[in-house]
């Protein structure tokens, strides 16, 4: 079988915040095209920092990050933005712009990056994307009128509107009830199917990990401790790994 070229390659990633605060201590992760990779780990193990380094929201101290075969660490701002346009990032609380309605939240990136779009085309794109996350009825609402789950869906719609090839989810089900968490997990899968995206999902929610993952990586003290499928890791002989699955 032909070996797949990873779409995301992270090699020897180091990041520290001040003296004696090493968060990442040589993380190595590869993600293949079309794959859903779940990253698990205790709080403070460096999961969120890893995906933030991936879009250079946080600058790594050392290491290589290749996305679509392009080394990101030394890219100039304009070149970096070209790569960022192909990556969508769902923040923990959706990070919706409070002063804009749902429609304006979705229109904002489109108006910036698709100047050739007419108002009608923008409206069609917004409606289609909101329909794909099942929230068309919230189109004219303000973020303050939305529940936690709805904010995450709208946040996801906003990232999807630019049709990214990679999606990074930072704890997509945190703070949600079991039913809404399940709905978000289903949405992640349906997006993977529909848009053929590659995803990294940071989560503490094992139900979400089980449902969405093709592969799981577990971080411990800033390094990859182990990796495998959900079933492999669930039956691991390592007590610490198994503690995630209890």
């Amino acid at each position: 079988m032909k070996k797949q070229t990873p779409i995301i390659e992270i090699k020897g990633l180091f990041k520290s915040f001040g003296k004696d605060k090493d968060v990442l201590r040589g993380v190595n992760i590869n993600v293949n095209k079309g794959e859903n990779l779940v990253v698990l780990g205790k709080s403070g193990s460096g999961k969120s920092i890893t995906i933030k380094c991936l879009v250079r929201l946080v600058e790594a101290d050392k290491g290589e990050i290749k996305v679509f075969g392009t080394e990101l660490t030394n890219l100039a701002e304009d070149e970096l933005n070209q790569v960022r346009l192909r990556i969508g990032f769902l923040f923990q609380n959706g990070a919706l712009y409070d002063s804009m309605s749902v429609r304006e939240n979705l229109a904002f990136p489109l108006q910036r990056h698709r100047p050739e779009f007419t108002d009608t085309q923008i409206n069609i794109a917004i409606e289609e994307t909101l329909e794909s996350v099942g929230l068309i009825e919230a189109i004219d609402k303000m973020p303050s009128e939305l529940s936690g789950g709805m904010r995450k869906r709208v946040g996801l719609a906003r990232t999807l509107i630019l049709k990214p090839e990679i999606l990074l989810y930072d704890e997509p089900t945190t703070g949600l009830d079991t039913i809404t968490s399940r709905e978000i997990s289903e949405l992640i899968i349906s997006i993977q199917m529909k848009f053929k995206t590659t995803s990294i999902i940071i989560t503490h929610d094992m139900a979400c990990a089980k449902f969405t993952s093709n592969r799981i990586v577990i971080l411990r003290d800033g390094v990859v401790y182990t990796e495998g499928t959900y079933q492999d890791l669930e039956q691991s002989e390592d007590q610490w790994v198994r503690s995630f699955f209890i």
Binding site: I87, F89, N93, A95, D98, R112
Partner: peptide, 15 residues
């Protein structure tokens, strides 16, 4: 906006 990651969201969408 900073605390609720709205500024980060702008940055990752290349704005």
């Amino acid at each position: 906006m900073k605390v609720t990651e709205q500024i980060d969201a702008m940055e990752v969408s290349a704005i």
